[in-house]
Nucleic acid binder design. Structure first.
Lengths: 340, 340
DNA sequence: CTGTTAGCGCGTTCAG
DNA sequence: CTGAACGCGCTAACAG
C-alpha cells in the first residue's frame, strides 16, 4: 500500500555501521566522531530520512503533543485562543492536536478518547454548553495527564484555569447601559451549567441592584446559545407590554444576531434599544451600528493556558498546582449603546 | 513523571491469560470464547484501559490520521473547510491534525515535517501566498503519502484538487458591476503565484473586454493579502485623477476593509463606489452595506477534498488518480453593489 | 479457542 | 567512540 519510508536501519546498512551509531548521530549525542556524524547527516538528507515520532514517543512514553478541546472554532474567539496556545506550545517544542466537541457532550467524551489513545502529554479544555458531568475529564488526571481549563471552566475539578473576570465585565457593561439612561435592561443569559453564564448574570444583577433598578425576571431570558433561536427571544422581548430599552447578550455572536433582527424590525439602535455583547469578536466593530462589548485578551488566554499546562507537565503529579489566572477585560463602547 | 497507563499486559496479568487473547478480545476477533471476551471487556472498563494508538500505528504502519495544512483559520473560510473535511474523515474512521502555516513558506515547510514525522496517512493542503517552490510537498508523494490540494492549489503537481471556478466567479461578479452601470472597475488582485489570484484577475479582465470597457492598468492593484495595507491602496485609488466607481476585491476580508475605509471617508457605497468580494465569509452579510460576493460551498470543499484523499489512500500508488473537482459558486448580490 | 514468538522503529542500557 | 541486546505496547503469524 505504502512505500516504506527511510529508517535508521536503511541508513545504517548503507553506511555499514550500527543502528545505534546512526541513532546517536541523529540525536546530537556527544560520544560520536564528527566525521561519521557528518556522513550520517548527509545521507539522511539525501535519502530524506524523517524521524518516526511514533516510535520515539513509544520509547519515551512522551509524545510532545498537547491536545486542545474546544466547543467550536467557526467564531473567531476559539480560533484565536488556539493560535495563542499553539504559539506558546511551539516555543516549548510541543505540537498541538485540536478537537472540536461541536457543543456536544458525547462528542466531548469521544474527543477525550481520541486524546487519550493518541497519548497527549497534556490537554487544554473549554467545555461544551451541555457538560454537567466531568468523569470523562477526570480520566486525564487519573492517568497522570495534566489538564488546564480556559474560558468554560469547571468548579468541580481542582486544576489550573484561565479565565477573565466575567462578573466584573458584565457588571461594568450593565452599568454602562444604566449610565446611558437605560432603565429596562434585558439579558440573554447562557446555560446555567456554564460558570461564565452564571457569573455574567450575577454581574448584570448586581449592577442593577447597585443602581436601584428593580429586577424583572421577565427580562432575563434563559438561552441555550443556539443562534437560530435569538430572533424568537428578541421578538418576545419587544412585544412585552413593557419592553426593554437595552439588551445585554451573553456573547457577541448573539448580540450581532440581536442587532440584525432589530434592524429588520426597524427598531432604532441605540435610541429605542441599546445592545451590548461580550468578547469583542472579529466583526463586532464592523456591523452597523458597531457593537459595544467587553474585549477579552484571546491570544493571551491561549498562551497563558498553554504555559500553565507545560508547567504542570514538567512537574511530578504530586507537585501539580491549581492556580487560576484571571486576565483583564476592557470595555469597548461603540455605537450600539451610545449614539456616535 | 507520568503514571503508567493500563496496558494489555496489565489486563492479561490480572486475568491470568495471554496478552494475545486480551488483544483479540479487545479487537472483536472471531475466535474467542464469549465469556473470556466479556471478562476482558469488563476489566478493561474497570481499569480504564485505553488502546495506545502509537503502538497500533507503529505495527500497522498506518496512523488513521490525515493532516491538514492551511494558511490561517481566523477567517471563517478555512475553519469551515476544516469542519467539512473533519466530518468526512470521521465517517471513514480518520482523525485529523491541523497545522496553520500562517501564510509563511518556511512555516509550511516545518508543517510538512510535522506531518511526516507524525506519519499521517495523507494530507490536505492549501498553499501559503508565498509558496513558489513545491519540493517540500513533493516529499509526500515520494514517500507514498497522497496529497490533495484545495482552494490554493498548485499546477506543478499532478494530484487531486478541489477548487471552484474562480475565473467564472470573477467574470460574473465583474459583469454584475458593469450591468449596474459601473465603468471604472478597480481590482485588488492577489499575489500572482496563487492560481486563484490569476484566475480571478483573468475573469475580471475578460468581463471588461467582453463589455468593451478599456482596461486601465492603474486600476489593477497588486496586493499581497495584508489587510493592514488595504487602506493605503484604496486611498490611492480614490485620489486618482479619474477614480474608480467600483472595486472588486480578491476576497471578502479585503472587501470588508475597503468598505470600512470608504465609510470613514464618507464615500457612499454603492452610489459613489460599489464593492464586491469573493467567498461569502461569515460576516459579509452583516456589515453595512452588506457585501456582494460569490459564495463558495466551503463545507463541501472540505468534504470532497477529504473524500478524494481517502480514495487515494485506499489505492496503490500506481493507481492514484489526479482528478480535479470544480465546485459551484453562486453570486450573492447585496447592498454594496446595488442600492436596496 | 488460546498461547508463543517475532517485529514495527527507535532510544538506551551495557559491554567493549 | 561504537556495537549488541533489550524493550516501549501492540498485532500478526504460527503453533497447538
Amino acid at each position: 500500500m505504502k512505500n516504506r519510508q527511510t529508517t535508521i536501519i536503511d541508513l545504517a546498512k548503507a553506511l555499514k555501521i550500527s543502528k545505534s551509531t546512526v541513532s546517536r548521530a541523529l540525536t546530537n549525542h556527544p560520544n560520536i566522531k564528527t566525521e561519521t556524524k557528518k556522513a550520517v547527516l548527509e545521507l539522511a538528507g539525501e535519502m530524506d530520512y524523517q524521524r518516526n515520532m511514533l516510535s520515539v514517543s513509544l520509547v519515551n512514553k512522551k509524545t510532545n503533543t498537547i491536545g486542545i478541546i474546544v466547543p467550536e472554532f467557526v467564531n473567531s474567539y476559539f480560533s484565536k485562543v488556539i493560535i495563542g496556545a499553539q504559539e506558546a506550545a511551539a516555543v516549548a517544542g510541543y505540537n498541538v492536536i485540536i478537537c472540536q466537541s461541536n457543543e456536544n457532550y458525547n462528542q466531548e467524551i469521544s474527543n477525550v478518547n481520541i486524546m487519550l489513545s493518541n497519548q497527549v502529554d497534556g490537554v487544554l479544555v473549554s467545555l461544551t454548553k451541555e457538560t454537567r458531568n466531568f468523569d470523562h475529564l477526570k480520566r486525564f488526571a487519573k492517568k497522570g495527564i495534566p489538564i488546564v481549563f480556559f474560558n468554560r471552566v469547571c468548579d468541580e475539578m481542582i486544576v489550573p484555569k484561565v479565565i477573565v473576570d466575567d462578573f466584573e465585565g458584565a457588571y461594568k457593561i450593565t452599568e454602562h447601559l444604566i449610565e446611558t439612561g437605560k432603565k429596562r435592561i434585558a439579558h440573554l443569559a447562557g446555560p446555567d451549567n456554564l460558570i461564565i453564564s452564571r457569573k455574567r448574570k450575577e454581574g448584570y444583577l448586581t449592577a442593577l441592584k447597585k443602581h436601584n433598578i428593580a429586577i424583572d425576571q421577565e427580562l432575563i431570558i434563559p438561552y441555550d446559545l443556539l443562534l437560530e433561536k435569538v430572533n424568537i427571544f428578541v421578538n418576545h422581548l419587544i412585544n412585552l407590554p413593557n419592553p426593554p430599552d437595552a439588551i445585554f447578550a451573553i456573547n457577541d455572536p448573539t448580540a450581532i444576531k440581536v442587532i440584525e433582527f432589530l434592524k429588520s424590525k426597524k427598531i432604532r439602535i441605540p435610541e429605542d434599544i441599546a445592545i451590548a455583547g461580550f468578547s469583542n469578536d472579529n466583526y463586532s466593530a464592523l456591523i452597523e451600528p458597531p457593537l459595544t462589548t467587553m474585549s477579552q485578551p484571546v491570544h493571551e488566554i491561549g498562551k497563558v493556558a498553554a504555559e500553565l499546562l507545560i508547567d504542570q507537565m514538567n512537574r511530578e503529579v504530586k507537585d501539580w498546582k491549581a492556580v487560576t489566572r484571571m486576565l483583564k477585560t476592557e470595555i469597548i463602547i461603540r455605537g450600539s449603546s451610545v449614539k456616535e
